[in-house]
Write a protein that binds this DNA or RNA. Structure first.
Lengths: 204, 204
DNA sequence: TGAATTTTTTACCGCACGGTTAGTAATCTG
DNA sequence: CAGATTACTAACCGTGCGGTAAAAAATTCA
């Protein structure tokens, strides 16, 4: 995901630095102007080099954008994965919700890219993300059901779609309303899930 | 929303027919190729006339797209509004969920446009929709709380964001996976909300 | 019929896009 | 220092975009 050099040479210092810089400015440009407003010329200008220099380091503009998306998603996945992996049952799903929302709160520049990657509006056609993410969450829900945390009649697939949609909406809402309390909304969602899916009703 | 002629003359027959046709082909083009793939030339070609003819009936390409979005949203709003308006309390929220999902099931060509309008990726900057939709749903939730259907401690705003996100995800999922059972997912969401928000726990 | 007006076409304009080419600095290396 | 490699720039190319101008059809109406 992070390297598209077939196998070749070990990348010089300059090469690594430029690639990292280009990925960085691309992330910022997408955050500011969205994908459609992120042109090759703008990327070059933001990096202080010419268009051709950008294409010297990457085979195409799409490759730059893809690398930027890859970088963000890798970082997000690492963070969320660590939080989720340390837990099991319902706690894993709750960690998924909290950590994903928390990540966007701490990396505002990454948020728009994440939202667009989720919505599939990346302009680059890949989007195995959506399906695999849904399946991952469905797996977590299934595990929570198997462990007895969740009632036996929950539908993991449908519930995964619903939970992901809710999480994405919370994140997306913070883009249009920066004052939106995403942490609180995440807690509301966690509480709702406990009541709706919990086998032993969490509280009350 | 449906007419952008300032006030002028009453629109000839041809004018009305062409406008309707152009709106129709635009909806279909967006459904097939998304907004970015819907160019003026394509709209003209699909309608069997020249680009200039399109711009004779509409002041700009954006106006065509806007009219198409308006047409779809008007139709959707009318349908959902009728279902919701006939009910109150929790039943109104459930009708909102069921009718919105049902609409997209019965109007597949409109679905992508609705999803993109929701995601704000219309290419046309207006998007008061997202905010007003959230506020409308928040109002419904608040009313359900006031009527005693929902527990008194629900947060209408945060819950509205979550519910809308879940509904949108169900609809969006059907775009990438046409076999996805949106009606069933809607029922799952309704059940979850009853358990999570209901003051008297719906069932169990 | 013939004039007025509607609808439409053809040809064009300028622009921003992604990408290529050829040459030029800069840097590394023997 | 010389030669090779790396890193880059300026200029250009073709394409598709939204939009405009002028004139030709088609239609309406007296």
């Amino acid at each position: 995901m992070s390297a598209q050099v077939p196998v070749g040479r070990p990348l010089t210092i300059t090469e690594q630095a430029r690639r990292a810089q280009l990925i960085g400015v691309t992330i910022d440009l997408v955050a500011e102007h969205g994908y459609p407003g992120t042109s090759l010329a703008r990327i070059a200008e933001a990096a202080g080099i010419s268009k051709a220099a950008v294409l010297y380091h990457f085979p195409s503009k799409d490759a730059v954008v893809r690398a930027a998306y890859g970088s963000v998603l890798e970082s997000l996945t690492a963070y969320v994965g660590a939080e989720v992996g340390a837990r099991s049952g319902a706690a894993a799903i709750e960690a998924y919700i909290r950590s994903l929302v928390a990540y966007t709160r701490h990396h505002p520049a990454h948020t728009r890219m994440i939202v667009e990657a989720i919505a599939g509006e990346t302009g680059v056609d890949d989007t195995p993300h959506a399906a695999s993410r849904r399946d991952s969450v469905a797996g977590l829900i299934d595990a929570a059901r198997a462990s007895g945390d969740y009632r036996p009649d929950v539908d993991p697939r449908a519930t995964a779609v619903i939970v992901n949609g809710a999480v994405d909406a919370i994140v997306a809402e913070s883009l249009t309303d920066p004052g939106f309390d995403t942490a609180h909304a995440a807690e509301e969602l966690v509480t709702m899930l406990r009541r709706a899916l919990g086998a032993t009703d969490g509280e009350r």
